Amino acid sequence: MVTEYTVERVKSGIQGFDDLIEGGFPKGTTVLVTGPTGSGKTTFGVQFVYKGAELYDEPGVIVTLEERSRDLRREMLAFGWDIGKYEREGKIAIIDGVSAVVGLPSEEQYVLEGNLNAEDFLRYVYRVVKAINAKRLVIDSIPSIAFRLKKEEEIRSVLLQFNTILLEMGVTSILTTEAPDPSRGKISRYGIEEYIARGVILLDFVEKEVELKRYLLIRKMRETKHSMKKYPFEINENGIVVYPSGELY
Rank of each mutant, 00 (worst) to 15 (best):
K225Y: 05
S173V: 00
N117W: 13
V2K: 15
F79R: 00
E168F: 01
E67S: 05
E207Y: 09
F162K: 05
F79Q: 00
G170W: 04
G191A: 12
Y86N: 00
L212H: 10
V171S: 00
Y249I: 06
K11I: 11
L72P: 11
L167K: 14
K27V: 09
K150A: 10
E119R: 14
I174K: 01
D120R: 15
V125Q: 11
H226V: 05
G239M: 02
G103S: 06
L77R: 12
G97Q: 04
A146H: 03
K135C: 01
R88C: 00
N115K: 13
R70L: 07
V101L: 14
E211S: 10
D57T: 08
K225E: 09
S173A: 14
M228I: 07
T37L: 14
E237L: 09
L122K: 12
L216E: 07
T34D: 12
N117E: 13
L160C: 02
I165L: 14
A118D: 13
P232E: 00
V46N: 01
I14E: 05
P36D: 12
E234L: 05
G84L: 09
S106A: 13
Y110M: 09
L175R: 06
G52I: 01
I83F: 01
V206S: 10
F25W: 13
T34F: 11
A134R: 03
S245A: 09
F205H: 08
L72R: 06
P182W: 11
I14C: 08
F17C: 07
E113V: 03
G24D: 08
K230R: 13
V128P: 04
R214S: 02
K91G: 02
I192L: 02
R222G: 01
I142H: 10
I62C: 07
L20Q: 10
P36A: 11
N238L: 03
I196R: 04
G199L: 07
N238P: 02
V102I: 15
R184V: 05
G199K: 04
S188Q: 05
T29M: 12
G199E: 04
K51N: 15
R68L: 12
G170S: 05
G97F: 01
V128M: 09
F44P: 00
G24M: 11
E154Q: 13
E211T: 10
R88K: 13
R136N: 05
L202A: 08
A146P: 04
V102N: 06
L166S: 00
Y124N: 10
R189V: 07
G45W: 03
F147S: 12
E209Q: 13
V210N: 13
Q15E: 14
T176M: 07
A131L: 04
V206H: 13
V241Y: 01
G13M: 11
L20F: 07
R219Q: 02
V31C: 06
F147T: 14
E75F: 03
S69E: 14
